[in-house]
Amino acid sequence: MIPARMAPHEARVSGCYAELDAVEVALFVTCLTDTFFPRVGEAVVRVLRHFGCRVEFPEGQTCCGQPAFNSGFDAEAAALARRMIPVFEPYEQVVTPSASCATMVKTHFPELLADEARWREAAARLAAKTYEFTTFLREKLDVDIGAHLSFDEPVTFHFPCHAREAYGPDDLHNWLAGGKQADLCVPEHSDLCCGFGGLFAVDYPEISGPMLADRLEDLAASGARLVICNEGGCTLSLAGGAHRRGLPLRFKHVAECLAESLGLMEPER
């Protein structure tokens, strides 16, 4: 028996492996992470396994439909919601490395399907069991994120706007500051959009560009070269902007930092 108040990763340490597989998690990797940042998906899997989860990857998953939803194409977004819900129906819990996609599932799926009796409850069920990665670690696995991080170079961060539902800029700041040998270089504005905004970046590159420039200026001025950013969309935008400008910035998801700090993955240089 695991004592009631024992966290699953403590159980692992104490050797109660039999109970560990009880925490079953389906990974909702998101289309951007799947396509552009597979290493983030790998890190999430390894960290979740490390803390005692059995991870499944339902291969039927594609995109949650957020780009369509944010552009006002409700019907298209709803179609993808109806497709995605059954894919995750069999699992107890769903974890995703993207707070933005988590919000899509948790908040907007139920809104989109509110008038469809057939889907309303299923949408609510999925919403209730879906977690953003760090929220799942903290709330379901009782993991103190900062305590497991260590860095061997100065680090800064980009707070993704859509993470606000899951955690605040201060939380991100505190996790990183709590890491071993952390030399945290706080950007001048701890909470500033990178200019991505889904189709906005494609609709209005004239506006998105200067916004991206503002954010990169902050990050470049922070003094660190390693930027922690937990959102694939933001990273795609920021890394692309940094590459265009020749800025020596590298971007990592906190899951990658955790996996490296815990010795679950080789550090990427």
Binding site: V29, T33, D34, T35, F36, F37, P38, G41, E42, V45, F57, E59, A201, V202, D203, P205, E206, S208, G209, L212, A213, L236, S237, A239, G240, G241, H243, R244
Partner: peptide, 22 residues
């Protein structure tokens, strides 16, 4: 073209996450 107006686009790795998983 619009996306790369102000930023470059990384070419995705040939091994996507789902391939990696499999």
């Amino acid at each position: 073209g619009a996306w790369t107006h102000c930023r470059d686009l990384p070419i995705p790795p040939k091994q996507s996450f789902r391939k990696l998983w499999r």
